[in-house]
Amino acid sequence: MERRGGAFSLDGLTALVTGAGRGIGAEIAIALSRNGANVIVLSRSGVELDGVVEQIREEGNVASRIVCDVTDPEAFSADLEQVPQLDILVNNAGTNFPEAFVDVTLDQLDAMLALNVRSMFTVAQACARKMIGNGEKGGAIINMSSQMGHVGAARRSVYCMTKHAVEGLTKAMALELASHRIRVNTIAPTFVETPMTKSFFEKDGFRDWVMDRLPAGRLLPASDVAAAICYLASREASMVTGTSLRIDGGWTAQ
């Protein structure tokens, strides 16, 4: 099947994208397919996944879906066992509850730790075990981080904590898995207007707060995040591991 619209060669590779029902995750899945990958999309909502799978197939590319809650490692591992081949993991599922530090509730804390850190670890662990079976072919794991994994910000204490954890996890994974030819990196975007962040931008003053701190002067298109993912997943990035690709318009350079 001819690959259309992609700059990087992912032909013959199978990619799993978590949190792929909408927003950045859906954009990533579609971009990977356009670069030649067979894509498996995963989220808790089968209805959302159906739309992503349909779009990929309409473009003549290969896609399937898994309906699963990644915070349930046993369920995820059982679903992963049914996947015959895995070369790329985009560990994308995550959440945020912006709140003043002194007002963060235990429920908010636990929810973000469970999804942004614990499931990030357990999903990567299960996929790494599967990729080790690829032998010399190896694999690529891309953990979704954030510019907030490199700096701090008001009302984002827990989110910053979880993304700093992802950055540390990624470096340690990269060292341990290098001998298996499995590369591990993070993507660290600035603000993207997505279904998750849309409500943030509707609050008085938030957009101005972001733009005052964003030297590039514009929000990050989800398509730019997807393009960076495709690069890190590709053979062109065969010596890139243990690093964080910041797509932040200069935010963390200040």
Score class of each variant (00 low, 15 high):
Met1His: 11
Arg3Lys: 15
Arg3Thr: 15
Arg4His: 12
Gly5Cys: 08
Phe8Gly: 03
Phe8Asn: 05
Leu16Pro: 05
Gly19Trp: 06
Ala20Trp: 02
Ile24Asp: 00
Gly25Met: 01
Ala26Trp: 11
Glu27Gln: 15
Ile28Tyr: 00
Ala31Val: 13
Ser33Tyr: 00
Asn35Thr: 06
Gly36Pro: 09
Asn38Thr: 14
Val39Gly: 05
Ile40Cys: 07
Ser43Gln: 06
Arg44Ile: 07
Glu48Asn: 14
Val52Phe: 05
Asn61Ile: 00
Asn61Pro: 02
Ala63Val: 06
Ser64Met: 07
Ser64His: 06
Ile66Thr: 04
Val67Trp: 05
Val67Phe: 05
Asp69Thr: 11
Asp69Met: 11
Asp69Leu: 11
Val70Pro: 08
Asp72Phe: 09
Ala75Leu: 12
Ala75Tyr: 10
Ala78Pro: 09
Pro84Gly: 09
Gln85Pro: 06
Leu86Phe: 01
Leu89Asn: 06
Leu89Thr: 08
Val90Ile: 15
Val102Pro: 04
Asp103Gln: 09
Val104Asp: 00
Thr105Asp: 02
Thr105Lys: 04
Asp107Arg: 14
Met112Pro: 09
Leu113Val: 15
Leu115Tyr: 08
Ala124Phe: 04
Arg129Leu: 13
Met131Lys: 02
Gly133Met: 03
Asn134Tyr: 02
Gly135Asp: 05
Glu136Ala: 15
Glu136Gly: 13
Gly138Ser: 03
Gly139Cys: 07
Asn143Glu: 01
Met144Thr: 10
Met144Asn: 11
Gln147Phe: 06
Gln147Arg: 09
Met148Ala: 12
Gly149Gln: 00
Ala153Phe: 04
Arg156Ile: 01
Tyr159Arg: 00
Ala165Gln: 07
Gly168Trp: 04
Leu177Gly: 06
His180Phe: 14
Arg181Val: 10
Arg181Pro: 09
Ile182Gln: 04
Arg183Glu: 01
Val184Asp: 09
Thr186Gly: 02
Thr190Val: 13
Val192Arg: 00
Phe200Ile: 05
Asp208His: 10
Val210His: 00
Val210Asp: 00
Val210Glu: 00
Asp212Ile: 10
Asp212Met: 12
Leu214Trp: 01
Pro215Ala: 01
Arg218Ile: 08
Pro221Val: 01
Ala227Gln: 13
Ile229Gly: 00
Tyr231Met: 11
Ala233Arg: 03
Glu236Asn: 11
Ser238Asp: 12
Met239Asp: 03
Met239Ala: 11
Thr243Phe: 00
Ile247Tyr: 01
Ile247Arg: 04
Gly250Glu: 07
Gly250Asp: 05
Trp251Val: 13
Trp251Phe: 14
Ala253Tyr: 01
Gln254Trp: 12
Gln254Pro: 08
Gln254Cys: 07
